[in-house]
Design a protein around this nucleic acid. Sequence first.
DNA 1: ATCGTTCATCGTAAATATACGATATATTTT
DNA 2: AAAATATATCGTATATTTACGATGAACGAT
Lengths: 105, 105
Amino acid sequence: MAFSKKEEFTKEDMWLADIAKALAHPARIRILKILTSMNSCMVGNIVEQLPLSQSTVSQHLKELKRVGLIDGEIDGPKVCYCINNKTLIKAKKEMDKLYSIICNC
Amino acid sequence: MAFSKKEEFTKEDMWLADIAKALAHPARIRILKILTSMNSCMVGNIVEQLPLSQSTVSQHLKELKRVGLIDGEIDGPKVCYCINNKTLIKAKKEMDKLYSIICNC
DNA sequence: ATCGTTCATCGTAAATATACGATATATTTT
DNA sequence: AAAATATATCGTATATTTACGATGAACGAT
C-alpha cells in the first residue's frame, strides 16, 4: 500500500469516516453505553464489564478519545471518563445529513 | 492477537459496529453518495469519480455489499450497484437508538 | 520512604485493511 | 472466432487494528 489515499476526499467525508471507525468495534459501542449508564466512570469498572484485558480496554478508550467522543479527566490515581456530548451531537448531525442524502429515511 | 473477541458482545452491538466499519472509509461514504446522485450505477462511472484504481473500488464495493448497504445486479458485462434502502433504514434506526441511549440528542 | 492502586504505554504477535497491477471471467460486438 | 469492454479476483506489499502481558508513572495511604 505504501500510503493511504484517505486524504484525497472532502473533510466532511473524512471526519464522518473517522467517527465511524471509532464506532467500528462492539467493545467501543459497549463502552459508550457503559459510560452513560454508570455514575462512576473509572476504567476499572469498565474493564470489569468487558471480556477484555485492562490494556486492551485502555486502547479502546484511547481511540474513542482520539476522535473526541469521550473525555478523560485525571482524578488522583484514577481517571474518570465521560461522554463528550458536543462531539456526539455533531456526529449525530453529520450522520443524519448523510442518511438524508443517501436514503429515504 | 490470535483471535478476535468481537463475538463476545451482543448481536445488536456487533451489527452496528459492523455497519460502522463499512462506513469507516471516506471512499465508501463517497460511493454511497455517488450511487444516490447518479442515474447510472456502473462501476466504471464510480471509478471515474474516485482517486482509486478499479480493483480498489471493487474491494470497497464488496465491503459495502458484505453488510448489505448496497446491492449489485449483473446487467450483461456490466454490474449495476444500488443502495439497499431496507438495510439503510435499519442502520439509521439502530444508530438513532444508540444515540438516544448515550446522548441528549 | 515504601506499598498498593489505578491507569497508560511498550513490546510483540496475529489478523485485517488498503492499495495496486496482473489476470481471469463474462458478455457484447465485430 | 476474435476483439473489446466491464468487472471481480489473485497475488503482493505495507499499514493498521486488536489483543495481551509486562513495565512504568502517578497518586494516596501507611
